[in-house]
Simulated scan of single mutants.
Amino acid sequence: MRVVSLVPSLTEAVALTRPEVLVGATDWCTHPDGLDVDRVGGTKYPDLDRVLALRPDLVLLNEEENRRADADALVAAGVPVRVTFPRTVPGALTELGDLVTALGVTTAPDWLVAARRAWADPPRPATPRRAVVPVWRRPWVVLGGNTFAGDVLRRLGVVNAYADDAERYPRPTLDEVRARDPELVVLPDEPYRFTADDGPESFPGVPYALVSGRHLTWYGPSLAEAAALLTDQLAGAR
């Protein structure tokens, strides 16, 4: 089997489960450390000629991270694709289990066992906190409803102020965000790299927590440590 992954989360999953089958990944696939495979460009605009040159038996994609046009082009070229799109933690764990099976592995790898255990009963505060979760600025983009990251936070006791929004990633003005009167602002370090300056500058007087964007949005092996790490980071709100 020869696998090309266009999804950083799944690249890490394959590399830690059956590293010998992973022959290609995107430039954004940064985990595990020292990953040594052919690179095929970005997630949004991969070099499909380079993908095809690797003669993959399977290409891994995500409905949100990758373009439908690239998936269609690969299918038209006769390449099997596997498209994921988890919106909840249980959904992600199910899709990861299915991927492991598709890789020909009959026993759940240690990282998947640990992830299932970690999210079976994650830590959460006694009193949920109402928060806004910016994921970009210039323009401002916040986490809306029906998102994987939103479900991660909900399970850790964070109530997303935009959870009921019809848009998965609303684009309110900063004044509109402030008008939601959040009790907490959650600032991830990716895809936009928020820093400690962004909290008091944009949301004066509101506690903010800097969190790992990878552990908030990736749905691979990082899930095994995400619950504990994010809980600590949220508890450090200042």
Rank of each mutant, 00 (worst) to 15 (best):
D33M: 11
V113A: 07
G41P: 15
A179N: 06
D27A: 11
P182V: 01
C29M: 05
L223Y: 04
K44S: 10
D33K: 15
Q233D: 05
R168W: 01
E176C: 06
A126Y: 00
P32T: 09
G104W: 00
M1H: 07
D121V: 14
R178A: 14
G157W: 03
P172Y: 04
V37N: 01
R116W: 05
R138E: 14
W218T: 11
L234S: 02
Y219Q: 02
P125G: 12
P191D: 04
R117D: 00
A228D: 11
V159N: 01
R178N: 06
L60F: 07
N62Q: 09
R171P: 03
G205F: 12
A114S: 09
A13Q: 10
T127M: 15
V133K: 03
V79S: 02
A131S: 06
T195D: 12
R138N: 15
R129G: 01
P204D: 09
P86S: 06
D33I: 13
P19T: 14
V3I: 05
T217I: 06
D70Q: 12
L229I: 15
A226D: 02
A163G: 03
D175Q: 08
V105G: 08
R82F: 00
F194V: 13
A126L: 07
F148I: 14
L35K: 00
Y219L: 02
A76N: 10
V75I: 15
A149P: 02
V105F: 06
V141Q: 14
L230Y: 12
P182Q: 06
G42P: 09
L187W: 12
V75Y: 08
V206L: 14
A228P: 09
S5D: 04
R87G: 08
